[in-house]
Design a protein around this nucleic acid. Sequence first.
DNA 1: AACGGAACCTGAAAGC
DNA 2: TGCTTTCAGGTTCCGT
Length: 272
Amino acid sequence: VPELPEVEHARRVLGEWLGAATLEGVAARGGRLLGPGASAGGVVRALSGRRVCAVERRGKWLRLGLDRGAVFSHLGMTGKWVVAALDDAALPHERVRLDVRQGRRRRSVRYTDPRGFGRFLVVGEGEPPPTAWSTLGPDPLLDGVDAPALHGELASRRQAVKAALLDQTLLAGLGNIQATEALYHARIDPRRPARTLSRAEVARLARGIGRTLADTLLRDDGATITYVAEAGASNPFAIYGHQGEPCPGCARPLQKVVVAGRGTVFCARCQR
DNA sequence: AACGGAACCTGAAAGC
DNA sequence: TGCTTTCAGGTTCCGT
């Protein structure tokens, strides 16, 4: 259930596990994950023997640059990259397996995804990247958030500001949690039509985005990422998942509504 | 053209 | 206890 910070963490670990590695053994389960028209056999043929030159992230997408072609990986709602021993059996819901060699060292890197909303798209040399990748807006971490430019974009949209923040062509990497948290930090009601935000409010929003991403990145930098939905995980967010509890700012109970089809927590007093 | 809602899946938690 | 319903940190397609 990853947003930008968790995907950034995945980029870092994949850089370690796959950097300058040769793909010696590849296995994939067919299906939607591989994209329309792609087959497991085709993926195995395209990747076997390839060398990983770069591991990059834009928004919620990962790109594995190869000596010929590339792989675009999206984690969907429940995707995860994990490292295993070469003789480990398939993990639950394992969909892709990359057995690699880095110099003398060998590893087995697995992609698991229970709900299967993720993507593992193999693109050959000279083929264009997936549309979803090439239409991504600025990445807040790589490009920063340009408040005046964001204000200009929002000025032409009637939709709720939270819906706009979830549009990956506007900004790449925000999801339901980060959008909820950014709007809280910026003290803006998530239901406000995007075009009604003043320049000063968009400037606050830009800072709110930076703040929630930095907070979450700091937490995710440890070895293990705990997801709110997982049993026994404590919720580290300011308001996400805290509906009914007192607002950290004013102590009034936090509300929960649906905006753009997604559960949205906010404080009716602090966020206007 | 833009927007809201359903669809795509599985599993954990809440409800009865 | 056990069955049913709801909901989940995402994206895309479809109808209005």
